[in-house]
Design a binder for these strands. Sequence first.
DNA 1: GTCTATACTTCGATAGAC
DNA 2: GTCTATCGAAGTATAGAC
Lengths: 223, 223
Amino acid sequence: MASSLQPRRIGAADSKTRARLVDAAEQLLLEEGYAAVTSRRVGARAELKPQLVHYYFRTMDDLFTEVFRRRAEENLARFQRAMAADPSLRTLWRLNADPRGSAFSIEFVALANHRKTIRAEIARYAERFRAAQLQALTAALAADGITPDQLPPIVGLLLMTGLSQVLALEDALGVTAGHAAAVEFVRDVIDRLEPRTSNLGAGVSDRGCTDVCGPDARVTLPV
Amino acid sequence: MASSLQPRRIGAADSKTRARLVDAAEQLLLEEGYAAVTSRRVGARAELKPQLVHYYFRTMDDLFTEVFRRRAEENLARFQRAMAADPSLRTLWRLNADPRGSAFSIEFVALANHRKTIRAEIARYAERFRAAQLQALTAALAADGITPDQLPPIVGLLLMTGLSQVLALEDALGVTAGHAAAVEFVRDVIDRLEPRTSNLGAGVSDRGCTDVCGPDARVTLPV
DNA sequence: GTCTATACTTCGATAGAC
DNA sequence: GTCTATCGAAGTATAGAC
């Protein structure tokens, strides 16, 4: 609304207090949903005065945007690191199938449904992430002898993304029927394409997801 | 909280006023997200006093539950009707790929993330819908000569559900890269399994999605 | 950079008259 | 079944002192 001339002071972007507020907002978002991210509650969670939220962020949307951006950049960097270390289909699937962060994504997509600032931010990131994934999958499929004729990489990517999203979301609801079968199915396909023994990155790709993905929650947008 | 003894009067379930309130709540949910569904705004949208919300619904969660339940039952009934009329893979895909109602689903899944009453309601419905879909897909795949050995029906269902969800969600974000290719890919697969000319329900299955699915928004849970 | 103080709005929910 | 009246809590945001 009042975005034309900025009459109010705004705190420095590298402030430690600011980072604490973003941390608190993220926690609240994950634990109780976006409706729980209010200036008062964020302040309380960070053990700071709620007015500081307005000192560092002009509006609550600015805070939401910052929360999203921080996780998104981190997630993209982690993706690049993991794929550089072992550019295999197996690693790609493991990164994608990691259910952490799906709650995060859901909240932001719900927010995006009716706040255009957030939507633009998410869309921008989704496209970057999608491009990175597509490049990785295209290379991995080619290495495994799958031609675009058999399976266009973009289709495989949408299938893979969709499957992992559904698994994560249903899991959050407590509905898990058929999940094991689906995971097994994918693993069989990958095992056939990339036998574990002859894989040059065997030592790497046999590691569990926590090792591959890192300790933090992921952003698995879009969804 | 105060659910032990009910000291307050609650209006009849078949009241016309009550239905208007549910309508208003659903509109607000779709247009502005669950955070916009407040007793005051629902009342205003329905052109009724906000206190009537509390007369017909003990809590706001009760209202949310009613909004969800109504759409869910309607959606399940529509699914059963469509599959009874033409139990083909094509109809199943068309029903699943209909993007209407994905905003609805997103809001409720976000709500479910932190309100256990809502989560239980959604989970119950998701399982019913999943079972109905699985039965239909199992029959359709068998009719098309696909054995569970080649593709377990539950895996196919999760893949199909996931793909259509991703398409719908990305669409809402304005990210549509590769969508056409994915849709074409699925159509090719279905065309190969169910040639349009020899299909006994050809007249039916050639209709557009609006005809098959009905005019209203769908619930495409889970997601 | 952080504080106190505060303006103003909206929220869920209830009591009790009609 | 619907109304008026109202409670207490919580929301965003700003001004200005320190």
